[in-house]
Amino acid sequence: MALKVIDSHFHVWNLDTQDLPWLEGTDGTITHTYTLKDLEAEYARQAGVEFVGGVYVEVDCADHEAEDKIAYDIKSADPKMLACMLRSDVSPWMRVPAFAAGIREPLHIDSEPKGRCLEPSFIDGLHAMAAKGLPFESCNRVNELEDAYEAFAQAPEETVILNHLGNVEELSDEYKAVMKKMASLPNLYLKVSGFPTADKKFVSDLLKFTRETFDADKLLYASNWPVVKLYSTFDEHFSVLRDEFGDDEDFFMNNAVRAYGLKL
């Protein structure tokens, strides 16, 4: 029986119609247009895998409202786009596209001030999202994870989906301490993605720590495609996680269904 996979974090973009200023700071590896069909082809190459679909995550393009329309059009045309996490500034009065499954305000980008997630309007926005059943997609600078924990602890009823293992850089005592705090939050999920795969010992130690720290039902498979190409390859990242988790459909699919409230 094929392993059913939901990719909880992928991006697509069209450089003919979208401006992504942050790509200028990369090495050119991903300065291309990517479509959902391209991602489907990546999964088609994996033996014994059925790609159920994935969660589109905003791409920090210059025109956020134009991105909403682009994502809507793709989702309308391709059932493999199961949900969209779109861009807004978190507050009780935030703009939320009608078809969005939830919101991401990217806290890791240079334009976001330190401590942004501790502003009262942000905390109030988390409460407002919880009341509407909208999860928050959180991408953070690793040295500000403590601030993020303090923010999320003030709104424990809100579902938070922490991206890319907190953008871990090293398995330091500080990182391990704050991630243990994150694991204590009742509605926080963690995407197992974003890490370079070349350092095998680091990967082994990181995944061991993650699995020992977080409940199994709070861990989500994610590819971070095509950004994964900046630090690994799609094939190697998928292989590492399949070796680690086996054909565990809770990790590869069911946990994402619960985290995002997906209707399959």
Rank of each mutant, 00 (worst) to 15 (best):
G125W: 02
L118E: 05
G48F: 06
K80L: 08
C139R: 01
A47G: 11
K80N: 12
V49S: 08
I103M: 00
R87A: 11
W93R: 14
G115W: 05
E119P: 02
P106Y: 05
A100T: 05
V96I: 15
R87D: 07
V57P: 03
C61S: 11
A131T: 11
L118W: 00
V57G: 04
E150R: 06
E170R: 03
E137N: 05
M129T: 02
R45S: 15
P113H: 09
I74G: 12
D78E: 06
P79D: 14
K114V: 10
F99G: 00
R45T: 07
N167I: 00
A131W: 07
G48Q: 09
D73V: 07
H127G: 10
I123F: 10
N167Q: 15
I70H: 10
R87C: 11
R87W: 10
L82H: 05
V52W: 02
G133M: 12
G102N: 09
M129D: 00
H64D: 03
V90Y: 00
I109E: 03
P113E: 14
A153P: 04
N167D: 14
D89S: 12
D68E: 14
D78K: 00
R45D: 15
E67I: 08
N167T: 07
L107F: 07
D78G: 00
V160R: 02
I123H: 06
E67N: 03
E65G: 12
F136K: 00
L134V: 00
E169V: 01
M94P: 01
E144K: 08
K132G: 09
V90I: 15
I70W: 09
E158V: 04
K114F: 05
E170S: 12
P156C: 08
A98C: 14
S138A: 15
S121G: 11
F51G: 00
V59R: 03
A62D: 14
I161Y: 01
F51I: 03
L134E: 02
I123M: 09
A101W: 01
A131H: 13
A131L: 13
Y149L: 06
E119F: 09
P97H: 06
N143C: 08
L165A: 01
E65M: 11
V96P: 07
L82W: 04
F122R: 06
E144W: 00
F136P: 00
A47H: 15
L118P: 02
H127D: 11
K114Q: 13
T159V: 02
M85K: 06
I123P: 01
V160T: 05
E137K: 01
K75Y: 09
E174M: 11
E67K: 06
A130F: 07
K75L: 06
C61E: 11
Y149V: 06
L86Q: 02
H127N: 15
V52A: 03
A153R: 01
D124G: 04
K80S: 14
S121N: 12
V59I: 14
A44G: 14
S172A: 11
K69A: 14
A155M: 02
H108F: 09
G133Y: 01
S91I: 07
